[in-house]
Design a protein around this nucleic acid. Structure first.
Lengths: 207, 207
DNA sequence: ACATTTTTAGAGCAATCGATACAAAATACC
DNA sequence: GGTATTTTGTATCGATTGCTCTAAAAATGT
């Protein structure tokens, strides 16, 4: 029943992602959105409800296409420790290739809109938690595979890795320098290669 | 000479800090600013030039009152490793007490306005570099004092600490949970308490 | 007292904001 | 073909944006 949609919904949402990603939520106008989505303002409100509702849709599209895709792809390799390393390496590469300085839409949203909008805040927190639990699964699998020391705390270190990841994405916005970003990450990766016994005096093997 | 200013310049700038801090650059209107500064719109433009120029002034005030104050205070204690620990602990405490979820103005600006404004980007990058170099000085001083293992790379680990710090501030915006934030920080602090390279003969610090 | 300089309040500028009203156009079902 | 339903383009709503203009008010210098 009714007239058919004339625009490509996938391309429209991708256009909306580009808009919000490049300019941020507040700075993006409905007219900007409509233009980059290839539709009129009326169609935008008819199909997506409005700016805020569209933003939630955009967040999910972004999460599916970036972090969830990466998690699924790396986890499927069956090499847990290398998956963590590759995840962080890809983020650094993405940040350095990002000439427009758009950063990560989830991180941008976590600071820009999440604190002022409880619902969006929960959505963003959920996506970040997915990344942390990916790290946790990798650590646990790596322990079982003998790749990662048994005595490291999977929950705690996964939070550490998430924090380091977020730090990289923030720092890259003002200082996209490979040496700097790799320095941020390196100690976290070293942690996975050698035992950590905080507060315990331990002997070091001599060579 | 002409007519004297009738408003308190310090209170006015503090009001502007509160505005930009709570709402972000774009979402803060000149009328909001003027109201919270206790002045009229004309006085704002007369005294500070406009919204953007005022924001640069606000950034400097914020940096002086928060990170620079903290760096000076902790560095003056003469206990480098504890200074690093206290810095991160204070950030966690601040993040948890921050009911309004304002976060850190410098971090917010690094994502919100810095990528779209080269001058402000350099200003923000400079303030972040001040924090990193504080960490570096602490590490070097701690090494000399025997508090911190000699074989850790002061420049690299200072970047790691800055990254962890930024990660904490981002994560706290959507998930202000003490256990989570302390997990982010803990491995970085452990790094300062024990050797980083397996197979290297060295002493364990026991302070 | 007078001229000069600066600050102040208030009105108002063009532009843009998110959102909506309305009717023409396009489809499906009968 | 007729009717119902949805999408579309256009025009526009009131509100708000950053900013400026004007003129009165308040200070100093002579």
């Amino acid at each position: 029943m009714g007239r058919l949609k004339e625009f490509d919904e996938d391309k429209a949402i991708d256009g909306a992602v580009d808009c919000f990603w490049a300019r941020g939520y507040e700075a993006t106008s409905v007219r900007d959105l409509a233009e980059h989505m290839g539709i009129g303002g009326a169609s935008l409100y008819n199909a997506y409800g409005g700016k805020r509702a569209l933003f939630v849709t955009v967040l999910e599209r972004y999460a599916n296409r970036s972090s969830r895709e990466r998690i699924a792809r790396l986890e499927a390799t069956g090499r847990p420790r290398q998956a963590i390393e590759a995840f962080l390496a890809e983020i650094i590469d993405r940040s350095l290739k990002d000439r427009a300085r758009k950063g990560c839409l989830l991180v941008n949203s976590a600071l820009d809109v999440a604190p002022h909008d409880a619902e969006i805040g929960k959505v963003v927190a959920g996506y970040l938690e997915e990344i942390r639990s990916f790290f946790q699964r990798c650590i646990e699998a790596g322990r079982d595979a003998g790749q990662i020391p048994r005595n490291i705390d999977a929950v705690g270190v996964s939070a550490h890795l998430l924090g380091v990841l977020l730090g990289v994405r923030v720092l890259a916005r003002t200082r996209p320098d490979r040496a700097l970003l790799e320095s941020v990450v390196r100690p976290a990766l070293d942690l996975l290669n050698r035992p950590a016994m905080p507060g315990t005096r331990r002997k070091i093997a001599t060579d």
